[in-house]
Design a protein around this nucleic acid. Sequence first.
RNA 1: UGGGCCGUCGACUAAUGGUAGGUCAAGUGCCUUUGGAGCACUUUGUCUAGGUUCGAAUCCUAGCGGCCCAGCCA
Length: 576
Amino acid sequence: MNTAKPETAGIEPASPEPRPSNFIRDIILNDLKTNKYNGRVQTRFPPEPNGYLHIGHAKAICLDFGLADEFGGHTNLRFDDTNPEKEDVEYVDAIMEDVKWLGFHWDGLFYASDYFDQLYAWAIQLIKAGKAYVDDLSADEIRKHRGTLTEPGKGSPYRNRAVEENLNLFERMKAGEFPDGSRVLRAKIDMASPNLNMRDPVMYRILHAEHHRTGNKWCIYPMYDYAHGQSDSLEKITHSMCSLEFADHQPLYNWFIQQLGIFPSQQIEFDRLSLTYTMMSKRKLRQLVEEGRVTAWNDPRMPTLCGMRRRGYTPEAIRNFVTAAGVSRTNGIVELAMLEHFVREDLNKHAPRVMAVLHPVKVVLDNYPENQTEEMDAVNNPEDPAAGTRKVPFSRVLYIEQDDFREDPPKGYFRLSPGREVRLRYGYFITCKSVVKNDKGEVVEVHCTYDPATRGGNAPDGRKVKSTIHWVSASHAVDAEVRLYDNLFTKEDPSELEEGQDFTANLNPNSLEVLSHCKLEPSLATGAAGSRFQFERLGYFCVDPDSQPGKLVFNRTVALKDTWAKIEKKGQTAKG
RNA sequence: UGGGCCGUCGACUAAUGGUAGGUCAAGUGCCUUUGGAGCACUUUGUCUAGGUUCGAAUCCUAGCGGCCCAGCCA
């Protein structure tokens, strides 16, 4: 990235830790060995600023920046801004923020629009060489002349215009003499090519649109194919990674570079990242936002980087996931469970533990003195001794999780039930003596006795207890709203549709569940937006930006693995 | 249907003509003041058919299956 590493620049990987081999690294290794680019590795990440970055882009980012970094190379951030009708500064700012958040730093910051003058000069050069011409055909006529997958195309009647006429017309296109769509500049290649991209592709179209960077300087804009390879070449990109659907464009990418005789960047295609229960199309994500199916681009259910950030995912987790998922040329779908694994793995190491009750039910310790409060010592993170301990207030009336009490416990259920003794984490052993129910027969209070000899959670007589449950002192608890998220889609592949349906039919109606009046230990009363915690036995949660002092809002990032839920589910399916 | 790309455990991915391995998931056990975490173990795979070779996931041929391309989008 920014700093060259002389001691590692060269063939040896910059990092000693083993990374999974992949075919792109092999190509780079080989290019280094043959000295194809004098030992240079220069990559670029080229987003179009027409939307927000998602986890699929994270894969490209990790590849572009990660591979260059590994070999002491450099990476540019280049905005592919050749279509002013769809692009906006709002997106360039968001993209830069997301790249930085993911943990990467670009060397050069460029825009394809920086090269508009050079691209124009090169177009003139191609016209003069008889390799490009102005076509007066309409878009519709061009499509008809292009032929089909099985039939060759036909040449435009304007294909053999004189160089002088082409020059004149192209200059007047630039000068704004013609309306949108009236003419284009085309490369003269081969109308019979089996690769449709080579059937005289359009290089420039007329677009009287204001560009977010060049303003009204231009009314003709280069197409992707005419801009991308030359942009790479100008930046001396050695390895230009892009997704598989551009493989058919590679002959054209190379054609422009060869005709112009400029630095030969090489394009390498890899497979996009797909995730189960997730939709990665920018167009469809935009639709979800615009139709209000989610609250915004950064809705925590979105696969966008800003959504995942708000959800509490860490950059480290995303990077580890992307690396583990690997890169190849096959079209596969990675299981969401794998992403969640890496999120848990990172949060387990770093998130402070805390106690919170999401579905509270009252526990009254009948033999505990009224108005007494004790401060119990609690470990902040068993994975990290340096995280220290904290004090948690304990008193006669507590909240525990509804799930942690069963009046009629099923087989294998170890938690509280009438007559049973359990441990309150960092508290005391308690034994359930009776319950109080409301008119509807629901348990509203569980009455227990505590054993004063078990303070802190250990019995001096050595007796064991099958279960430890979490709790919050009722009089000390702070209230919070907690937002639980589930998959945005109900199908592994959301594009799998019945007749006449559109993808929104696969939206999960229960992807968001909002809980109010959850009870949190008081240490949570203050916490900056983005702060991440493990709510013991429940999952990882973070403070949402909507949170305010006195009006706390938490997001569930991901639940903890729940062995009991699995056992219980298996029992149910076994029954019927 | 022309062209391009691709087929390895349930998922993802290694093995670069020489022991089919790793991660996730699933399962079993151990451990545990989180039914968390951790640890140990286990199950499951080279699309098919031919060929080359002492030896093929790998090379060749033919099938079969999947993805991409007919924007003045990227």
